[in-house]
Write a protein that binds this DNA or RNA. Structure first.
Length: 490
RNA sequence: GGUCGGUUGGCCGAGUGGCUAGGCAACGGUCUGCAAAACCGUCUACGGCGGUUCGAAUCCGCCACCGACCUCCA
């Protein structure tokens, strides 16, 4: 399938036409969650961003292998000697086996990603399952002379690397600057330079998660897993590497350095980074006290949230902003998004009610082109959604006879909208709307609305309004139209 | 301090050297028994100061403010 998909490549800081290495195959690697805590809003952004990419590439006819890792080892709490594996630290606090914690939060992550309609990746490898691959890379880099052993740990020699290659190409950093800006932490005497990073870390005695190696009983460095697992499942060169902007430096920079030594070149041709999420204009962070988990969002059980917001509202809200912009979560913005989504979904439901005519007053082909133009322009979902609202207007006009479609155009219009809204954007009507209700409820509602219709026919406005008001109190909105009444649970 | 990014109408949020973004809210109208929904219309904004240009919110410079990264982070 031909496409003019352009994506913003962080490497060049420009939009580039996407050309896969071996069409129709596309290799996509995205940094996944560290499963030591409940999934939060921050996890939703990259998951949804790259879900759209995954879905769209698939729509374009590519055979995508999407690899998104689960980090269950290796991320240090800090860079110092006494640093310990995040997972292990949490486990000790709760007196659980580390893998118990991993299991629990991995399942939580999956549950909430499913709720957000984030498709499962093709492969979801775990860092703990790839220690051998990671150690092999450590050996390779040591052999090439770009790493050194120190007190049971192995560090990447950034200075040496920078002599032959350029360190900082992705993030635009210069090594000399890093010298002055890198934090000096206690116990860094093992490292030659503060900017060197660990490939293998010797475990402290209290450290539960550890693996034997010829250097020490320890665990792999924080950046190594992605290098090892992406190479294993996608090859040493693959198409797209994605992740949050906060991972740009040092994580992705280090991946490039490791890969350059181990494989002779950087891992990916295109690097894509989604921007961060803010809460009321401020970065979300545990230390800032504005940390909101997805569960809290879905239940409304958080001080900063006025009400519960459904997964589709959050998905829609995120898609209403471009993935490279920050998106600010506030109650006003979320409520606006919720209503907007409802309007869009109403429109989709109305689509089936359009009666085909003898002529078409809407240029379906031009509309289609506009929509794909938006997607092709670095996944510009806000523009796509703006077009979709134009379509909603056309749909509503058609239902009331102010716009028309031929049978053929109506079919292609309907198919196009289903493709865009459901398949590519991955949206769906809110969980408890009329369309998804039980047959029993449908039957009851049909009866009730019939009775109201009877009352209206008899000009018994009191009864008609009583029915409407009582339903409204139950959260069921009655919508009258010339064709009769429909209903919807709010 | 270094690097990078942002500042758009009541709110959110796109975009671009001249041509309506879109959503939410508000207001007016049509429809309706009355409403709601829907439709039509109104609200015409781009931080400040200079500069380039026939023309800039869009390019350049300076200033102000905000934020991200530089430390685990999505």
């Amino acid at each position: 399938m031909k496409s003019e998909l352009k994506i913003f490549n962080t490497l060049s800081r420009k939009k580039e036409i996407f050309t896969p290495i071996k069409p129709p195959h596309v290799g996509l690697y995205v940094c996944g969650p560290t499963v030591y805590g409940d999934p939060h809003l921050g996890h939703a952004r990259p998951a949804i961003t790259f879900d759209i990419l995954f879905r769209y590439l698939s729509t374009l006819g590519y055979k995508v292998r999407y690899v998104r890792n689960i980090t269950d080892v290796g991320h240090l709490e800090n860079d110092a000697d006494e640093g310990e594996d995040k997972v292990a630290q949490k486990a000790r606090l709760e007196e659980l086996e580390p893998m118990e914690v991993v299991q629990y939060y991995t399942e939580r992550y999956h549950t909430f990603m499913n709720a957000l309609h984030v498709k499962s990746p093709s492969i979801e490898p775990r860092a703990s399952g790839h220690i051998i691959e990671q150690l092999a890379i450590v050996e390779k880099i040591l052999k090439e002379g770009f790493a050194y052993e120190s007190n049971g740990s192995v560090y990447f020699d950034v200075e040496r690397y920078n002599q032959e290659h350029q360190y900082g190409t992705l993030s635009g950093r210069v090594l000399e600057d890093l010298l002055s800006t890198t934090r000096q932490l206690e116990g860094q005497t093992e490292k030659k330079n503060s900017y060197d990073f660990a490939l293998w870390k010797k475990a402290t005695p209290s450290h539960i998660m550890r693996w034997p190696s010829r250097f020490s009983d320890g665990f792999p460095g924080w950046h190594l897993e992605c290098t090892a697992m992406s190479a294993r499942y996608l090859g040493e060169t693959f198409d797209i590497h994605g992740g949050g902007m906060d991972l740009l430096f040092p994580h992705h920079e280090c991946e490039i350095a490791q890969s350059t030594i181990a494989h002779g070149h950087g891992p990916a041709r295109y690097w894509m980074h989604n921007n961060m999420i803010t809460i009321n204009g401020q970065k979300m962070g545990k230390s800032l006290g504005n940390f909101i988990t997805l569960e809290e969002f879905f239940t409304g059980n958080h001080a900063l949230i006025e009400k519960a917001y459904g997964p589709m509202t959050i998905r829609f809200f995120i898609l209403q902003a471009h993935y490279r912009s920050t998106v600010d979560f506030s109650n006003d913005a979320l409520m606006a998004a919720e209503k907007g989504l409802l309007r869009l979904m109403d429109g989709m439901a109305q689509l089936a009610k359009i009666k085909a005519g003898t002529s078409t007053t809407f240029d379906v082909e031009a509309f289609k082109n506009k929509c794909f133009e938006a997607l092709n322009d670095d996944l510009n979902t806000p523009i796509l959604i703006a077009h979709l609202f134009d379509a909603v207007r056309i749909i509503n006009q058609s239902v009331s006879g102010q716009a028309h479609f031929t049978e053929k155009d109506l079919t292609s219009f309907t198919e196009l909208l289903h493709l865009l809204v459901f398949d590519i954007l991955g949206l769906a009507p809110p969980e408890n709307s009329g369309s998804k209700s039980s047959e029993t409820l449908d039957g009851v509602m049909h009866l009730v609305l019939d009775m109201r219709q009877q009352a209206k026919a008899n000009k018994d406005w009191g009864t008609a309004d009583q029915i409407r008001d009582a339903l409204s109190a139950l959260g069921i909105v009655v919508k009258d139209s010339k064709e009769g009444a429909t209903w919807e649970i709010k």
